[in-house]
C-alpha cells in the first residue's frame, strides 16, 4: 500500500518535472532546429528537427553576381556561414570572454578581502558596514544606470571595455556570499596562520581563498552567466563600435542587419553564443549544482 502511494507521488513529481523541463527546453530546441533548416522549412514549420537538408540557393549571393554553383549549399552550412560572415561573431565572443573574465577577476580581488574583514575581523562599525552591503543587494541595476552612465561619460569612458567592466567590479553579492562562507571557516585556522607568521593579506589569499574554492565557483557561475548574457548595460555604454560588442548585443545588431525573415542564420548565431555556457555547464555540471546548492539559491 505504502509502496504504491510512493510510486504514485514519484510519478506525479516526474510528470511535473518533465513538463517544466519541456517548457525550458522548447526554445532551445527551436533555436537549434531553426539553425539547421532552410528558410522555406522554417516558414512552413516542416522538416522535423533537422530539416530535409535539401540543397538551397542563396538569393543574396546571386545578386552579388556569383555563380549559381557557389551560391548553392546545404541549409545548415548556409546558416552557420552566414552567421559568421554577416557579423564579426568571433570578435563578439572574444569580447564576451574578455569582459566576463575581467569582471570576475576584479570582483574576486575586491570581494575576498572585504568578505574576510566582515567575517573575521573585529572593527568598530562592522555591523553597520555589513548592513550597507545587504542594503546594496536591494538596489536594482536599472535604478542606478543613468548616474553610472553619466559618470562614465564625464570621464570619457563610454565605448570602451572599461565602461563594460568598471560598474560591476564591486559585487556586493560576491562580498555577501563569500562573507557567509568565511563565517564557517574555523577561527583556529586563521589564528594558526597568524601564529605561523602570516599577514592578514596572506591569510586572505593563502588560507581563505583555497578553502573557499566551492563558494568561489558558485560565485563564478553567477557572475559569468550574468555578464555573458547581459544585454542591458552593453546596450547603454556601447553605441556603435562593433569591435567592443558583447555577444548578446552583437546578436541584436546582427538581427537588424538581416532581411526580415532570415531566422536561420540568426538562430545559428544565437546557438554559437550560448554554446560556451552550455559546454561549460556540461563540463562542470556537478560543481555547478554543488555551487548553487551551497548558496542556498534556487
Amino acid at each position: 500500500m505504502n509502496k504504491r502511494t510512493n510510486l504514485g507521488s514519484e510519478v506525479g513529481k516526474h510528470i511535473i518535472l518533465i513538463i517544466g523541463a519541456l517548457v525550458v527546453i522548447l526554445p532551445f530546441y527551436l533555436m537549434l532546429s531553426f539553425s539547421f533548416k532552410s528558410p522555406a522549412e522554417i516558414q512552413s514549420i516542416s522538416g522535423g528537427f533537422f530539416g530535409a537538408q535539401e540543397m538551397m540557393t542563396d538569393r543574396k549571393c546571386l545578386k552579388a553576381e556569383r555563380s549559381e554553383e557557389e551560391c548553392t549549399m546545404l541549409p545548415i552550412v548556409y546558416n552557420y556561414t552566414a552567421a559568421f560572415k554577416e557579423a564579426p561573431l568571433l570578435r563578439y565572443l572574444l569580447n564576451g570572454v574578455i569582459v566576463t573574465l575581467s569582471i570576475f577577476a576584479i570582483q574576486v580581488i575586491i570581494a575576498l578581502p572585504c568578505a574576510y574583514a566582515l567575517a573575521k575581523l573585529n572593527f568598530w562599525g562592522r555591523d553597520v558596514v555589513f548592513g550597507l552591503v545587504i542594503f546594496c543587494l536591494l538596489i536594482p541595476v536599472h535604478a542606478i544606470a543613468l548616474p553610472l552612465y553619466l559618470m562614465l561619460a564625464k570621464f570619457g569612458l563610454t565605448n570602451t571595455f572599461a565602461a563594460l567592466v568598471i560598474p560591476w567590479t564591486i559585487s556586493v553579492f560576491g562580498i555577501f556570499l563569500m562573507r557567509q562562507f568565511f563565517k564557517t571557516v574555523p577561527d583556529d585556522l586563521i589564528n594558526a596562520a597568524r601564529m605561523d607568521g602570516m599577514s592578514e593579506f596572506s591569510i586572505v589569499w593563502k588560507v581563505m581563498l583555497p578553502t573557499a574554492i566551492p563558494a568561489l565557483l558558485a560565485f563564478a557561475i553567477f557572475s559569468v552567466v550574468a555578464h555573458w548574457n547581459d544585454y542591458y548595460w552593453p546596450r547603454i555604454v556601447i553605441t556603435g563600435d562593433q569591435d567592443l560588442m558583447t555577444p548578446p548585443l552583437g546578436l541584436r545588431m546582427f538581427k537588424s542587419d538581416m532581411d526580415g525573415n532570415e531566422y536561420g542564420p540568426m538562430m545559428a548565431a544565437a546557438t554559437v553564443i550560448v554554446a560556451p555556457l552550455v559546454v561549460a555547464f556540461l563540463l562542470a555540471q556537478r560543481r555547478f549544482i554543488e555551487g548553487i546548492t551551497l548558496t542556498g539559491m534556487k
Binding site: 583556529d188 585556522l189 589564528n191 594558526a192 596562520a193 601564529m195 607568521g197 588560507v207 583555497p210 578553502t211
Partner: peptide, 20 residues
C-alpha cells in the same frame, strides 16, 4: 602582533591547512 612573538601554538582542532 601574534606573528612576531615567536611563539608556536597547537590548537584543539589542530587547524591544519586543509588544502596543503
Amino acid at each position: 602582533r601574534a606573528s612576531e612573538r615567536d611563539l608556536a601554538m597547537v590548537f584543539q582542532s589542530y587547524a591544519l591547512y586543509p588544502h596543503l
